[in-house]
Design a binder for these strands. Structure first.
Length: 494
DNA sequence: GTAGGGTTAG
C-alpha cells in the first residue's frame, strides 16, 4: 500500500508523539530524512519536542536550528522551556534574546520559563523585566504566567512584592496559595504561612488544599517545633489522602517528627512508606544525626546504598554531620574520601565544612586547620567558627588564636568569637591574654548577649535564660516568648 | 500542539 507524502508525514508525526525510547526516535528521524519529508515545520517540531522530552537537548537544538518557519512560536517555546527545565538557564535566555532579535513577541507560553531562568542564573533584573512584559503584553489573566511571576518573587524571598502580586491576581488557584505558604516558610514567617494556610482552608469548596500544599505546611510546623500542629496536619493527610499516598508528604512527616523530638514517629512513617526516594533516606539519616544516633545513621546509609540508592550531595552532608555529632571520626573520613572515589563527584563547600567540624570536635585541630588552608578562598566564617569551637573544647591555644584572628577580621563585631578565645585563655590560666581580649571587647563596645530558650507546655510558654540579662528582665523575656508562641495550638481548623 | 506549585543538610 502506497501512502502520499502528506499521509506519511502524518503517520510519522503520530508515531513520534508516542515514542518513549531514543532508538525509536532515531528511527523515525532517519525515516523522515530518507523519505524526503524534511524540511517540514510540523514534523521537525514534533522531533524537537520528543528530543526535549528525552532530555537530549543537543539533538533538540540541532533540529530547532533547521526549522524553516522561524515565526512558529510553538518551536521557540519548546526550546526555551526545555533549556530551563534542564537547568540550562543561560541557553534559555540566549534563545529568548534570539526570539526578540527576530522581531517576535513572547506569548503566554514563552514567559514562565523566563522566570525560571532568571532564578536559575540568579539575576533578579531578568524576572523584573519579565514582570513588566507580562503587564505590557496583557498576560496577567493567564494563571500559569501569573504564578510564574509569583514564584519568581517567592524564590527571591521578596515577600512584599509576592503579596502585592498575590492580592492583585485575577485567577488565584491552589498553585498560587501553595507558593505563598512555601514563600512565607522560606523566609521564616511561619505564623504568616500558617495564617495563609488557614485562609486557604476557610475558602472551603472554592479552593481545595491539595497534596502539594501539605509538605510546605508540615515544614513550617516543624520549624515552629509545634508537635500538636504536626499531629493535626498528619491526621488531615490520612483522612484526605489515606496512608502513604505521596513521597514528599511522607518525607516531610519524617523530618518534622524528628525536629519535634519524636524520633519513634519518624521511624514509624519511614517504615510504612512504600514509595521512598533519596530524600526519604536523607530525611531519616538527618533525624538520627539530630538525635546523636551516629551508628543508626551509618547503618541506614549502608542499607540505602545496598538497596541501590545513590546518595546525593545533601545525603552526604547529612551523614557527615551525623558522624561529626557522634564523634565517628574514622567513619566520617572514609565517607568524605568516598565522595570522589565511589560517587564520582567533587566534594562541595558544605562537605568540607562538615569535615572541619568533624575533625575539630574530634580534637584533630591541626588536620582541620590544614584542610581549611587547602581550601583558600572558599573558607567561610562558620568553618573558622567550627575550628575555634573545637579549640575551646580541646583547650588548644595555638590553633585557637589562628582561628579567632581570622574570625576577628571576617566578623569584627561578633562578640561570641572573642568570648570563645577568652574561654581558651581562662581554661589555661592565661590571665594577661584574657585581660587583653576583654579590653579589646570593651573598646569595640561588645557585650555578651544572654542566651535563652523556651518550651511550650500545656499551651504556655516557659522560658529559660542564661548569662547576664542586662536590660531585659526575665519577666520581659517570658512576655516576648508568650507573644511569639501564640496561644492557638489547635487552630488549624482541620 | 508547548507552561506552573511541595519534601532532605548546613
Amino acid at each position: 500500500m502506497k501512502y502520499s507524502l502528506l499521509e506519511t508525514r502524518k503517520k510519522l508525526s503520530l508515531l513520534l508523539r508516542s515514542c518513549v525510547a531514543h532508538s525509536a526516535v532515531l528511527q523515525c528521524h532517519a525515516q523522515s530524512f530518507v523519505q524526503g519529508l524534511l524540511p517540514n515545520t510540523i514534523l521537525q517540531t514534533d522531533l524537537l519536542l520528543i528530543y526535549s522530552k528525552l532530555g537530549l537537548l543537543h539533538d533538540a537544538r540541532k533540529v530547532f536550528d533547521k526549522i524553516p518557519d522561524r515565526k512558529n512560536m510553538y518551536s521557540w517555546n519548546i526550546m526555551i522551556a526545555s533549556y530551563a527545565q534542564n537547568c540550562m538557564y543561560f541557553d534559555a535566555l540566549m534563545v529568548f534574546r534570539e526570539l526578540n532579535c527576530c522581531g517576535l513577541k513572547p506569548d503566554h507560553y514563552t514567559l514562565p520559563p523566563l522566570f525560571k531562568a532568571s532564578v536559575g542564573v540568579d539575576d533578579a533584573c531578568i524576572g523584573s523585566m519579565g514582570h513588566g512584559l507580562v503587564i505590557r503584553l496583557g498576560y496577567e489573566g493567564y494563571a500559569v504566567v501569573e504564578n510564574s511571576v509569583l514564584e519568581f518573587y517567592v524564590k527571591y524571598g521578596a515577600m512584599h512584592q509576592a503579596c502585592y502580586v498575590f492580592s492583585n491576581m485575577i485567577c488565584r488557584d491552589s498553585v498560587a496559595w501553595n507558593l505563598m505558604i512555601s514563600g512565607f516558610g522560606r523566609v521564616g514567617l511561619y505564623l504568616d504561612a500558617i495564617h495563609c494556610f488557614r485562609e486557604m482552608l476557610s475558602l472551603n469548596r472554592m479552593m481545595r488544599v491539595d497534596f502539594m500544599t501539605l509538605p510546605s505546611v508540615l515544614n513550617v510546623c516543624g520549624k515552629e517545633g509545634d508537635l500538636l500542629k504536626v499531629r493535626e496536619v498528619h491526621g488531615y493527610v490520612v483522612r484526605s489522602f489515606g496512608f502513604d499516598t505521596d513521597a514528599a508528604i511522607g518525607n516531610a512527616l519524617i523530618d518534622v517528627y524528628g525536629k519535634c523530638g519524636w524520633l519513634n514517629d519518624s521511624e514509624k512513617v519511614f517504615r510504612t512508606m512504600r514509595c521512598v526516594t533519596i530524600v526519604t533516606w536523607t530525611a531519616m539519616i538527618s533525624c538520627y544525626a539530630a538525635h546523636g544516633k551516629g551508628e543508626e545513621s551509618l547503618l541506614l546509609f549502608k542499607k540505602m546504598v545496598d538497596e541501590g540508592f545513590r546518595p546525593n550531595s545533601i545525603t552526604l552532608t547529612a551523614i557527615l554531620t551525623s558522624c561529626s555529632r557522634s564523634g565517628l571520626i574514622d567513619q566520617g573520613k572514609h565517607i568524605f574520601s568516598s565522595i570522589r572515589s565511589d560517587y564520582r563527584f567533587e566534594p562541595t563547600v558544605e562537605h568540607y565544612a562538615c569535615m572541619v567540624d568533624l575533625l575539630s570536635r574530634g580534637g584533630y585541630l591541626v588536620e582541620a586547620l590544614q584542610l581549611l588552608e587547602s581550601m583558600k578562598s572558599s573558607v567561610t566564617g562558620s568553618m573558622w567558627g567550627a575550628l575555634l569551637a573545637g579549640c575551646v573544647m580541646h583547650k588548644n591555644v595555638e590553633v585557637g588564636e589562628i582561628a579567632a584572628h581570622q574570625l576577628f577580621q571576617l566578623e569584627p563585631y561578633n562578640a561570641s568569637n572573642y568570648i570563645a578565645l577568652c574561654g581558651i585563655y581562662q581554661s589555661l590560666g592565661m590571665v594577661e591574654s584574657l585581660s587583653s581580649i576583654k579590653a579589646k571587647m570593651r573598646t569595640l563596645g561588645l557585650v555578651k548577649s544572654p542566651a535563652c530558650s523556651w518550651i511550650n507546655i500545656a499551651r504556655r510558654a516557659h522560658i529559660r535564660a542564661k548569662g547576664p540579662v542586662s536590660s531585659t528582665s526575665s519577666d520581659d523575656l517570658q512576655n516576648i516568648a508568650a507573644n511569639l508562641i501564640h496561644d492557638d495550638t489547635l487552630v488549624m481548623g482541620l
